[in-house]
């Protein structure tokens, strides 16, 4: 295993991860006054996370059905404000149970 190559690759990855995070924060030190830009930036967090989640969540497990079951549980729990702590383990548990069922039915 060529460790020099691996270490250099890790350094490259770290840099291209850090720079996009650091530059805007270091450069834009003043409050932006433009109302459109302000509104735009206020909606960014939700838009980014929504685009990352859907439809990717459906392909995050071994089977579409188990992922759909897990997603449904996550959406319902989030709607009733059950919090981050309960949500991730609950949807994982539902995926696990669904996949056991799918196995039993010979679908997985």
């Amino acid at each position: 295993m060529n460790y020099t190559r691996i270490l250099l690759a890790i350094l490259v990855m770290a840099l291209v991860t850090y720079l996009p995070r650091m530059l805007p924060l270091a450069i834009f030190q003043k409050k932006i006054q433009n109302r459109f830009v302000k509104s735009f930036l206020a909606y960014v967090p939700y838009a980014v996370l929504a685009a990352m989640t859907f439809p990717e969540i459906l392909y995050s497990t071994s089977h579409l059905l188990s992922a759909a079951a897990g997603m449904l549980v996550a959406l319902v729990l989030a709607y009733f404000n059950k919090g981050l702590l309960n949500l991730a383990p609950c949807s994982s548990a539902v995926v696990f149970v669904t996949e056991q069922g799918l196995k039993w039915m010979g679908m997985l």
Binding site: T53, M71, L77, L87, S91
Partner: peptide, 8 residues
């Protein structure tokens, strides 16, 4: 993804 949903 469960975390993302819990946040949004």
């Amino acid at each position: 993804y469960g975390m993302f949903i819990a946040i949004i």
